[in-house]
């Protein structure tokens, strides 16, 4: 129907697994990250999805903090079937962890807690990029 709507079109992630997407060029200083848990086979496990960023010349990644959710852990947490949103909002200066996107971004996906044999099926939607239109 539409042009591709997903960055990861549906993937199983198992207990204790961590993986990264490829680096992608940013489309703006700020970003909206959305993901959907399609299936959950875990009582206590959660999926943590966070953004990392770097400049083109960098060889290491910088972790990023969300504007929303505003409380720790500042990332996208999936603990039930459904769609969740996280907002990354740049400020006028630089921050550590970063609040705004540098030249490249990627997603870090981690299965947290749970027990052996647990898994989720999830998909990550394309990032929505935007710029601040007022000082933040």
């Amino acid at each position: 129907m539409a042009s591709p709507t997903v960055t990861i079109p549906g993937r199983r992630i198992s207990h204790q697994e961590t993986f990264y997407t490829d680096w992608m060029s940013r489309g703006g200083d700020c970003a909206v990250l959305r993901a959907q848990a399609l299936y959950k086979s875990s009582t206590t496990g959660s999926i943590y999805i966070s953004l990392e960023t770097r400049s083109l010349e960098d060889t290491s990644a910088t972790s990023m903090d969300t504007f929303y959710p505003s409380s720790a852990p500042k990332l996208l947490k999936l603990d039930a079937v459904g769609v969740k949103t996280a907002i990354y909002l740049a400020t006028t200066g630089s921050n550590s962890p970063a609040r705004g996107c540098k030249e490249q971004v990627r997603c870090k996906v981690t299965f947290t807690s749970g027990s052996a044999g647990d898994y989720y099926v999830l998909r990550i939607f394309p990032l929505i990029y935007f710029d601040n239109c007022m000082p933040a």
Binding site: M1, V6, R34, Q36, L38, Y39, V83, I128
Partner: peptide
């Protein structure tokens, strides 16, 4: 918006 179709 984020557009998506139902997957399951």
């Amino acid at each position: 918006p984020t557009w998506y179709d139902t997957a399951v």
